[in-house]
C-alpha cells in the first residue's frame, strides 16, 4: 500500500515538473499556436540564471528566491525578442516556425556552451530543500519535490487568474478566439501576442529554476524536456489550461507506475504509446476549441 502511495507521490512530482515545463507552452503553443522549439532553451536560460546569481548571492535560499523573478524576466525577454524578430513573420506557417525555432535552439545551446562550458554544472540547493518529510517509515516525501509541486500549482493559479481577471488576460483570450474580430475591436493584436509570448517564455524560465533542484544543468537540458512538454499540450488540447494540468499529472503518474514495474526506457515508450492511443479517442486533445475553419 505504501509502495503505491509513494509511487503516486513520485508520479505527482514528475507531473509537477511536466506541468511546469509545459505551462509556458500551453500559452505559446496552446493559445497562440506557435511551435517554439527554443522553449527548452528558455528553460535552460532560467536554470543558468540560478547558476549566475549564486556567484553574486551566496546564500542558496535567497539566490533561489531572487532567481524566480529574474529568470522569468530573462526568459521572457528572450521570448519577446524571438517573437519580434522571427515568429511574427511566420504566423501563417506553423511547421516552418517549428524548424526555424529549432535553429534558434541550436544557436542558444552553443551560446551556453561557449559561455558556461559544455559539461554540466551543479547549483547549490538551500538546506531547507535538501531534507525529507517522513510520513511513515516507507513513505518519505522530499522537500524539493514538494517545493516544485507548490511552485507548479502557484504558477497555474497565477496564470489562471491573469487570464480570467485582468484586462490583458481578456485581450489574450479575445485574440485567441477570433484574431480578426479582436483587431477590429481595437485590440492591438501585435502587442498582445508579444505579451503572451513574454509570459509563456517567462514561465519556461521559472521551470528552469525548478529544474536546478533536481540535478545538474547543462546546454542540452532543453532538448531533453521539450518533447515531453509538447506531448502534454498536444494531449491536453489547444486553448485550455486545465487540459495541460490534467494530462501532466496523468502522464507523470503513468510514467512512475510503468517505471516501477519495468524500466525508465520502457516507461518512455509506454507514455508514447499511451498518447497515440489517447489521440485515437480524442484526436484534438482532452479539451477542444471548436472552429469551423477548413484548414
Amino acid at each position: 500500500m505504501t509502495v503505491i502511495v509513494s509511487q503516486l507521490f513520485t508520479g505527482v512530482s514528475i507531473g509537477a515538473v511536466l506541468l511546469l515545463i509545459a505551462l509556458g507552452l500551453s500559452l505559446t503553443f496552446g493559445q497562440m499556436g506557435v511551435i517554439n522549439m527554443a522553449h527548452g532553451e528558455f528553460i535552460m536560460a532560467g536554470a543558468y540564471t540560478v547558476f549566475v546569481l549564486q556567484k553574486v548571492i551566496t546564500d542558496a535560499g535567497w539566490s533561489l528566491l531572487v532567481a524566480l523573478p529574474v529568470a522569468f524576466a530573462v526568459a521572457g525577454l528572450m521570448g519577446v525578442l524571438l517573437e519580434y524578430l522571427l515568429i511574427r513573420r511566420l504566423y501563417a506557417r506553423p511547421l516552418d516556425t517549428l524548424l526555424v525555432t529549432w535553429g534558434v535552439s541550436l544557436i542558444l545551446q552553443q551560446l551556453a556552451r561557449d559561455i558556461f562550458g559544455a559539461p554540466n554544472v551543479q547549483t547549490r540547493a538551500p538546506d531547507s530543500l535538501t531534507g525529507n518529510i517522513k510520513i511513515t517509515d516507507d513513505l518519505v516525501l522530499s522537500n524539493n519535490r514538494l517545493f516544485i509541486l507548490t511552485l507548479a500549482l502557484l504558477a497555474v493559479l497565477a496564470l489562471t487568474l491573469t487570464l480570467r481577471y485582468t484586462s490583458l488576460g481578456r485581450r489574450m483570450r479575445a485574440v485567441v478566439q477570433n484574431r480578426d474580430l479582436a483587431a477590429v475591436s481595437g485590440i492591438p493584436t501585435g502587442r498582445v501576442d508579444r505579451l503572451t509570448f513574454f509570459i509563456g517564455s517567462g514561465l519556461a524560465g521559472v521551470a528552469g529554476v525548478a529544474l536546478t533542484l533536481l540535478g545538474p544543468i547543462g546546454p542540452t537540458m532543453g532538448t531533453n524536456v521539450i518533447i515531453d512538454a509538447f506531448l502534454v499540450v498536444v494531449a491536453g488540447g489547444i486553448g485550455h489550461l486545465k487540459g495541460s494540468v490534467i494530462v501532466a499529472f496523468a502522464l507523470g503518474t503513468l510514467q512512475s507506475l510503468v517505471e516501477y514495474s519495468t524500466t525508465v526506457s520502457v516507461a518512455k515508450v509506454g507514455v508514447f504509446v499511451a498518447i497515440v492511443a489517447f489521440l485515437q479517442w480524442r484526436p484534438q486533445g482532452l479539451f477542444t476549441l471548436r472552429t469551423r475553419s477548413l484548414a
Binding site: T263, K268, L279
Partner: peptide, 27 residues
C-alpha cells in the same frame, strides 16, 4: 485516420524518435 496532422503529427513523429533512441540505449 483520426486527422492528427500538422504540428501534432510532427511532434508525435519526433516523440517516436525519442522513444526509440531511449529504448535502444536502455537495452
Amino acid at each position: 485516420r483520426r486527422r492528427v496532422r500538422g504540428a501534432y503529427f510532427a511532434i508525435l513523429s519526433q516523440a517516436l524518435a525519442a522513444a526509440m533512441a531511449i529504448l535502444l540505449i536502455g537495452q
